[in-house]
Design a protein around this nucleic acid. Structure first.
Lengths: 229, 229
DNA sequence: ACAAAAGTGTTAATCTTACACCCATGG
DNA sequence: CCATGGGTGTAAGATTAACACTTTTGT
């Protein structure tokens, strides 16, 4: 207990955002200091002794990008002795989701020299082992979205059904049959129809807006339903 | 970078063992020091600056229980500021599996005052937040065993088919139809029949011994098969 | 009237579940 | 010959996968 350990503890956050014409993106910041100065990296930093891991993640995100996330989940702890060239740093990585409206807001307000969204299929060169960390996060969100309704955390409160479908196609990276998807998803009984309709951008029939009924989802789960897409 | 952080980093290992008449057990050690002196706890300890997380886990297991595991997977990082009453300790928990023969060996050789197996349904009072950690590990193994062939890591190399089935029932904690289970599992094509038969203990027809064909499993996965039980 | 996106049903194939009798051995 | 555990098939029901035309809007 008395020996000195000399390991630093950090958190990193992989923040995913979604917009139907862009697909899924990750929020990155440009490093201001060595090592890897000026390279892109995922936001994160050292944990303070009195704060919980989640508090640390949210604080760092607020400081570096001004963002507030609405879903946060621990991903994995990366601890390779050589992952930071200076000294031993172990990082507890989290992944986070932000709503589509937030995604656009950040895009408009941040200085692109400091923070920016990158499509997950067009990532820049990344600092440290961050490429690998993002890769893990993508795999996690991909598998998790199939058995937990986390997709809604990436959409606005009300959304056209087609956006949900496009989100699934974008994350799962494959075509999905529209009819089968709708049948299956609507049969779950966790989406409420609203009386609103999207105003068409350009041509096409306006689509009805839906919203996720979380209360009902939790009740159904308790009753033994299993969500799977 | 210059500030003092004063957080300790530890690893803990939840080691699962299996024996067909006992079900699934967890390896615990009795604490020799305060806090929680003499209480049962999961094995673990502080990470050294030069070793990887996995090396730390294996070293601690070797030191405290003499065990060598044949499967190790990161579980979760527990970092609540109050989880250790002395000071901030963040623990990266791993779960590990040992083969049935190893399970029996340890049971016979260790001083039960120092380390012992406890059935997951009859755990003693535990130090720190270790009850919660074990609970997470049980949930993880339960869900993971359904889509990854990790069950074999708990059985001997060659095993009667019925043992595999009992293992699944024991971990999933429910009855499984023998015929449907056999049909499904054998259809996967990842089990090799051997020419050996178990000598019956007492009465009953001797059962044929099977073994997991890992090579074949990996090939089939690459070809797009999906393991699900 | 046409281009674009939304909305919607049926059928065949596959997978899952429920269920019961015979076999090989030891005592 | 009986008790014990091993080994195996079939049929009904549920789920999934494949597939295309109609509706509503803007231009």
């Amino acid at each position: 207990m008395a020996h000195k350990q000399d390991i630093k503890l950090a958190t990193d956050a992989i923040v995913f955002g979604y917009e139907k014409n862009e697909g899924v993106s990750v929020l990155l910041i440009r490093r201001k200091y060595e090592p890897f100065m000026n390279q892109w990296a995922i936001p994160g930093g050292f944990i303070k002794a009195e704060e919980s891991l989640e508090e640390a993640v949210m604080r760092e995100l607020e400081e570096e990008t001004g963002i507030k996330v609405n879903y946060l989940e621990q991903l994995y702890t990366f601890g390779d002795p050589k992952r930071d060239p200076r000294q031993r740093v172990i990082s507890v990585a989290y992944f986070a989701l932000v709503k589509s409206s937030m995604f656009q807001e950040i895009k408009a307000s941040t200085d692109a020299e400091e923070a920016a969204w990158f499509n997950i299929h067009a990532l820049p060169k990344l600092a440290f082992d961050h490429k690998q960390i993002i890769q893990s996060a993508i795999e996690r969100i991909r598998s998790k979205m199939r058995y937990q309704p986390i997709g809604f955390e990436l959409l606005d409160k009300k959304f056209p059904f087609a956006d949900l479908e496009k989100l699934y196609m974008s994350v799962l990276d494959r075509e999905i049959d529209r009819r089968n998807f709708a049948k299956k998803f609507l049969a779950l009984g966790i989406l409420d129809e609203t009386e609103e309709f999207a105003k068409p951008e350009g041509k096409g029939r306006p689509s009805r807006m839906y919203q996720f009924n979380k209360k009902r989802y939790q009740q159904l789960i308790k009753d033994g339903m299993n969500f799977e897409v």
